[in-house]
């Protein structure tokens, strides 16, 4: 009984505190006031991707653009759920969610619908009936893989001996980015030297490439499913005196477009970096301002792939993540 009272009290305090922070940031005009947007996201410290994502949200949903932004960051699903609940109680107009986990959101989203709050998902999908949200703005990881593999085919190498370093098995990014390359292995156009997961870890990627070098097998392409693993792979090449990049023996490919990775491209040490765009805010803002229901429930974020040969410093400034 006591526990329950305590929990209620805590919840109340949370809601109040959220309400107060809301009040302090604006005068809270009812009509014709700013559009109230509540964003439930992962904390910026999670990754370079998230840092850029959070900054983008803050820039687009600014006061100048006619918004009143409230944010809550957590890596934990239950804390995110509580925050979303808080936003609903406060009465926001729109709820934007990048969920920590794909499950557990049914109740909260139903409440949001009852309260007339429109929900947009960004970056990550949630396992609920699609009537519960307006639209999901996400990346098409499979397309990212296809773009990268098409670029690789465009290099017209005599032979493709590929070291494929995969991300955490079962993640959206891994499945998407692996698919396109697997198709090439199956068709025989490219040879699989090794295909192994390094679970996004730089050191493990270095170990994998090092082991291939020690085994004496020949390879000329490294396809790493994120920037960090590409960096680890390149460290192994450097240690063994194998050249890489635009003038080297081995083609190096990464994903995510961190600024430091794009600088590697600019210096010619890497060849290709596929974008995984964290910039969904403008798309959602356009949808909100248009007032119309989106034509499709899933909106794919346009993404690029960068070739070291055509990369410019301005691209790094525009598309690079982190610092």
């Amino acid at each position: 009984m006591k526990k329950r009272a305590l929990a209620t009290l805590l919840a109340l305090v949370l809601v109040m505190s959220l309400a107060f922070t809301g009040c302090s940031s604006s005068d809270g005009k009812k009509s014709d006031g700013p559009i109230k947007v509540g964003v439930v996201n992962n904390p910026p410290s999670e990754s370079g991707y998230r840092e850029a994502n959070v900054k983008d949200m803050e820039a687009v949903f600014s006061k100048a653009n006619g918004y009143e932004l409230k944010t809550a960051y957590s890596l934990k699903n239950d804390e995110q759920l509580q925050a979303a609940q808080g936003f609903i109680t406060e009465g926001v107009d729109y709820l934007l969610i990048s969920a920590a986990e794909t499950t557990g959101w049914d109740e909260v989203l139903k409440k949001a619908k009852e309260a007339g709050i429109k929900v947009y998902l960004f970056d990550r999908m949630i396992n609920v009936d699609e009537s519960l949200y307006e639209a999901a703005v996400v990346s098409d990881m499979a397309k990212e893989g296809e773009t990268a593999v098409n670029w690789l085919l465009g290099q017209k190498l005599d032979v493709y001996n590929v070291i494929h370093i995969q991300g955490a098995m079962g993640s959206d990014a891994q499945i998407g980015r692996t698919g396109a390359l697997d198709a090439q292995f199956a068709s025989g156009k490219m040879n699989k030297v090794v295909q192994q997961t390094a679970t996004w870890d730089e050191a493990e990627a270095k170990k994998i490439v090092g082991s291939v070098i020690n085994s004496g097998e020949d390879f000329n392409v490294i396809y790493a499913e994120n920037d960090g693993m590409a960096k680890g792979a390149v460290a192994a090449l450097d240690e063994n005196g194998i050249t890489h990049g635009t003038n080297g023996k081995v083609i190096v490919m990464g994903f995510d477009c961190n600024k430091w990775a794009l600088r590697e491209l600019l210096s010619g040490a890497w060849n290709y970096d596929g974008q995984c765009s964290p910039f969904q805010a403008q798309i959602i803002s356009d949808l909100i301002k248009s007032g119309k229901a989106p034509s499709s429930k899933i909106i794919i974020n346009e993404e690029k792939g960068f070739d070291a040969k055509d990369l410019k410093q301005s691209d790094i400034d525009t598309y690079g993540l982190g610092e």
Partner: peptide
């Protein structure tokens, strides 16, 4: 042990023995 030129243009020793001692 092989003598290679790495990406920075340095002459470096490489081979399994070097991998062992370095690693």
């Amino acid at each position: 042990i092989g003598i290679m030129h790495n990406n920075d243009g340095n002459v470096v020793l490489a081979g399994n023995l070097i991998s062992i001692i370095n690693g």
